[in-house]
Design a protein around this nucleic acid. Structure first.
Lengths: 227, 227
DNA sequence: CGCTTAATTGATCAGGGTCAATCGTGGTGG
DNA sequence: CCACCACGATTGACCCTGATCAATTAAGCG
């Protein structure tokens, strides 16, 4: 049960909704006119496992976690999604994962039905969706490598480096998630996460400003660790 | 280096090639006319990491492993692909994984370029490809859950059940792969794989006929383990 | 200013890794 | 045909990393 205690699962509520406005990221953004902006407060559920997938989402701001549960409550976070990333794309009649807001966040929601008809008309949309699906796949596969074949410190180093990537200067990291979230993402316990961080700090590779904010001091060394 | 010693990596050779003939699996098989049959001998490489992806493949017979390597030689097998499954679908300019024949196998190869033009004309092909990509994604995500949050015996039970699924009677399993392959798929060592199997046998859940063949005796119990 | 929840730290334990010996099987050559 | 060899698999002994249990500290929040 210990994995469950940190998991908020109140029901989701859309706070605002209007015609989508989206920052484009690679010039073209063919989906821009068809979505709806929705917001979720920290800890709230965006969609649940086994639900019928009616829409998928793109992150505008905030962080979303996408995860699965084992029957005994153990949780595996598959991915954290940040601004610009798409999640919740599923073909079947039932969701395989659930999604929750790690922090307050703003999303654009695309109804599955309307996208499907749109995709028939515009080949660019199809390509775009494919792109997102394949990106998710690549992430999942890297995640497997991380989970299966690395020690605790290696996992942390790897995680921190990936976090630093979507950071402004590439050195300062603002963790949106709790230690429990990190643990469930890396397949570790909260204690081991904490110890790994302390250890990296003792070795001078990182500096913790406070619980949620840190700086990477020796990127080189961290990369060696992450191998 | 111990992980490397079991990895064959001779170069691939196509033995036969003619216009594709394919068994249809769900009525429609829009890709059937556009592929080329190729064969690979056990242990041979189908494509390598970092190579340019020129084609993707569908398994006709045999088993294929798809995997990644860490710089020190540790290997993570992402998936085993059997008859009917598609693999090697990638968008970028560089392959993220490599693929090797676990047993002698027959594949249908689809050239990326020709499929792309075909997909433009036939919406069914696009849909089909999407389907495969999403299936791979779902598999990868289940794999993460397996790797991150389960003990050795649980992993084995889970693996055996999944193998039994593509078996005729759902109880008899013919392992196409070595213990090393299984270990690298489950994120364990060869010894732990062996011990887990012995343990499951001692508990009467399975019966090993020989190294490569076994029967599931207590599916119920195995499912409980796999949770 | 307490109260609650998150995070750190320490002590101990156990699951799985490592090292090493043995077994089994299939292939080869005398 | 059988002895030998090579390689994969099994088994055992021991060790180490990370989990567990428990206590303490830090940080929000009413």
């Amino acid at each position: 049960m210990t994995a469950l205690q940190a998991v908020n699962s109140q029901h989701a509520a859309a706070l605002k909704a209007r015609t989508a406005w989206m920052a484009s990221q690679d010039g073209s953004e063919p989906l821009s006119t068809s979505g709806t902006v929705v917001q979720f407060a920290e800890g709230h559920e965006i969609f649940a496992e086994a639900e019928e997938p009616e829409a998928f989402f793109k992150v505008v701001s905030g962080v979303v976690r996408v995860c699965k549960f084992l029957s005994d409550g153990r949780r595996q976070i598959e991915a954290f999604h940040v601004a610009g990333e798409m999640f919740g794309l599923e073909l079947g009649g039932e969701r395989l994962l659930c999604a929750e807001a790690v922090s307050d966040c703003t999303l654009v929601s695309y109804r599955r039905r309307s996208i499907e008809t749109l995709a028939l008309k515009d080949e660019k949309i199809t390509r775009q969706l494919f792109q997102y699906a394949m990106q998710n796949l690549a992430n999942a596969q890297n995640h497997s490598l991380l989970l299966g074949r690395r020690g605790a410190a290696e996992k942390m180093a790897s995680f921190l480096l990936s976090q630093a990537e979507h950071s402004a200067d590439g050195r300062t990291v603002n963790l949106a998630m709790t230690r429990q979230d990190i643990a469930d993402y890396l397949g570790l316990t909260i204690e081991t996460v904490s110890r790994s961080l302390s250890q990296l700090e003792r070795q001078g590779m990182i500096a913790l400003s406070n619980t949620r904010e840190l700086r990477l001091k020796k990127i080189e060394a961290l990369e060696d660790l992450a191998a």
